[in-house]
Every structure is written in structure tokens, then in C-alpha cells.
Design a protein around this nucleic acid. Structure first.
Lengths: 213, 213
DNA sequence: TAGATTGTTAATCGATTAACAATC
DNA sequence: TAGATTGTTAATCGATTAACAATC
């Protein structure tokens, strides 16, 4: 642990992209990769890649590049994919089912262990191997199983009430897919994943024909 | 039209949030709103809000604020929610179904008209009211119906091939939910929506206990 | 060796925040 | 009027890009 190391958010967002690229190269049998190689694969500036990789503290060799395995370990360590965070899903609708059905999350340290919904038709069923519980069982389950992470895929009108309940039973982080800006106690992490903001950017770029992102 | 007006991406991402807040206020019967009001609702700095709102060219009155209706129109005009972009969905899996089932998109100018999938069990069925076609019918449908927008919710390994086909039949913009960085001809708009990057940021914030976003 | 690539320092660029006069 | 709020200019902050010496 290096105390309060601070990684820039844009860098964090790019690290998974690098990981994918160098994994592909590893599969082709390569053991080293240069920042230029990665940059080319992603249409990035190689200086940016080099600077991002410096955060891993992996050191490369001029004319050779970085050892792929070291880099994979270094990136995984930063973005938390060596951890295992058991998580509950709240709101077993279309989006919630999609998230639970995506095998990539468990591989990346986020492990759905149960789902909650207030639709009686769903309670008791299984979705992608996770049992759906009634929303009334939320606190009991979280406390019994020492869950610290929740993923919120419920409509905006119900989100704040659920967030309040989560804050009271030990949840430390909420990945929030609802459209509502949640009010939570200090120290709690809320990460808003905002598809509607993404759509807005897309529509503006379509209108202006702007092809850079 | 003001020629090549350029809006900062962070501003574009916030505009939908403002829209939601002022709509809620309008529903409560208010007709004017100050930048401070909006900022408080979202935990933003009011200067930032004021500067963002300036892009709408709506002008406010000191001590009063902005007329809500003017602001709604101004924001909608920028983020393209008064347009109607018919779109095809490619990949009718969990995520694709979730996106088609979200009523918010049509209201915001993105209108799914058909889905495509190469799973024969899905072809011919309807998902959230949209018919699912075979992937082989892609070009014919797009050309016959003059579609310009595609939403990609297929696995990475198949994404580039589909993107190549889309580029050849008149698609101008791809909202890309696959994990692959697509190579497309110049002038084509690709908007990557990267859930895995979002997860990375979330995991890092969880690990460091950083509550600001 | 020669030259590609690293690591790092400096310059640029853009977004956020601060300051403040104008105004209703 | 007094004071809250706008609109705008200036200052700060952080990320990207450029430059370049070190090195394998």
C-alpha cells in the first residue's frame, strides 16, 4: 500500500482498454509490448499511454517495451480486478438482468451474489444463477452476508429510498444506474453510470458530424 | 444554425441532469429557476451551472433566474432531443433488450425501429415491440428505411465485422456498447459506452474510499 | 554502433473555480 | 433601496501534448 496514491480518472478509464489490447497480444505469443503498439491499437497518443503505464510502476526497456505479464499484474492491481467484491443487484429488470448476465464483471472483481426486486412474480426465481429476493429482505441479507457493494438498477422514483436503506446497513459503495443523483452520508462512494448523458454526447456528435471522441 | 458551434463534452454530459431537475421544478408549478437552485439539487458549483446554461443562449434575470420553459427548449435544442433518429439495434441479447425497453430513449430522440440478431431462436420474435431480423437482412433493412444510426450490443469478436458492414450501407453513427475499439471510415461517428471503464473507476474509488466523483 | 523507445520535465490546452461589475 | 443573481473576465487547476536526454 502506498498511502493515498491518486490516479487520474481519465487514466483509470483507459487502463482496462490497455489490458484488453495487451491480453490479445499475449494470446498471440508475445511477451513484450511497447507503448507505441498499444497506442496504435487504440488510436491514442503514445506519450499518453506511456504516462498512464508509469502509474503501474512497471518499468520498460528502451527498444523493447514492457513485459506483458508485469503490465497485466500492474494494471489489475490498480483497477482492483484482483479483489473480489460480492455485490447485490437491486432492481431485477432488463438492465439489471443484463448486468448479471455479463460474465466480464465477475472476472473483474465484481461478483453478484443476489438480486432484489419488489415484483412478486420475480421473487424466488433465478436470473443468471442468482436468486431474486423480496426487497424487504434487503437489510437482513446484506448484514448476514457482510455485503459492501450494491448495484442500483431501479427507476429514479424509488432510488433515494433504497439508497437511504443501503446507507444504514453497511453498504460502502453504490454503482448507480438510476437517473437520480443520490444523497448519501459522507464517506459513501456513489458511482453514477449515466446512459442518458452518453446519449446526449452521441446526439450532439451526430448533429455536428464530429468524429473525435 | 450557428455554424460550427462547439460545446464542451463535460457540459453536454451535464445538460440532461439539469433538464431533469428543472422538469421536476416545473411539475411543482415553478416557472423560473436560478443556477443556484439547480446547483444545490445536484451538488454542483453554481458558477459551473451558470456557465453551462450560457451555451443555451437563454438569458436570465438577476434575482429571478431563468424561465424554465425557455431553458428546457434551449437545452433540448443543444442535446438533440427534439430530433428523431430512427435506429437499429444489433445484438438482441440482455443488454440490447434492456436498451430497447428503456422508454427514455425514444423520448430523447433515439427511436429503435428494429433489432438484428444471428440467433435463429430470436429471429421473427418481438422484443419490446420491435421485430428481430436475421443479421443477414441488415443492409437491406437499413437501405430500404434510410436508417443512419446503429446501436451495437454484440460481443467484441463480432463487432468489427458488423461495423464494416454498417459503414458500407449508409450508417453515420454507431453507439458502441461492445468492448472493441472499432475502426471506421473518416467522418463516421462512433460513441463508445464503456461499462468496464466505469467499473474500473468504481473499484478504485471503493479501494481508496474516495467519495468525490 | 545506430536508432527506437523509455522516463521525465516543460509547454500547451481546456475546464473549473474565483472575482466582480452590472442589473433587476 | 438592498441584495441576490446574472454574465463575464481572470486565475487556477489538471490533463494532454511536446521536447529531449538517457538507455538498451
Amino acid at each position: 500500500m502506498d498511502g493515498v496514491k491518486k490516479y487520474p480518472v481519465p487514466t483509470i478509464r483507459r487502463l482496462p482498454l490497455y489490458l484488453r489490447v495487451i491480453r490479445e497480444m499475449a494470446e498471440k505469443g508475445r511477451t513484450a509490448v511497447s507503448a507505441t503498439d498499444i497506442a496504435n491499437a487504440l488510436n491514442f497518443d503514445s506519450i499518453k499511454v506511456r504516462k498512464d503505464l508509469a502509474y503501474t510502476q512497471v518499468t520498460g526497456k528502451p527498444r523493447v517495451g514492457y513485459q506483458i505479464q508485469e503490465l497485466i499484474n500492474g494494471i489489475r492491481a490498480i483497477i482492483g480486478w484482483d479483489r473480489n467484491a460480492p455485490a447485490v443487484l437491486i432492481g431485477a429488470g432488463n438492465l439489471g438482468s443484463a448486468l448479471m448476465g455479463f460474465p466480464g464483471f465477475a472476472k473483474r472483481g465484481l461478483n453478484f451474489v443476489a438480486a432484489f426486486d419488489n415484483n412478486p412474480a420475480k421473487v424466488g426465481q433465478e436470473i443468471h444463477g442468482r436468486k431474486v429476493y423480496a426487497l424487504t429482505d434487503l437489510e437482513r441479507y446484506i448484514e448476514d452476508n457482510h455485503i459492501e457493494v450494491a448495484v442500483l438498477t431501479i427507476p429514479a422514483f424509488a432510488a433515494q429510498e433504497v439508497a437511504d436503506r443501503l446507507a444504514k446497513c453497511g453498504i460502502r459503495g453504490i454503482w448507480n444506474f438510476s437517473q437520480l443523483k443520490l444523497k448519501v452520508p459522507a464517506g459513501m462512494v456513489v458511482q453514477n453510470e449515466n446512459l442518458v448523458s452518453g446519449l446526449a454526447v452521441f446526439m450532439v456528435r451526430l448533429a455536428t458530424g464530429c468524429s473525435e471522441e
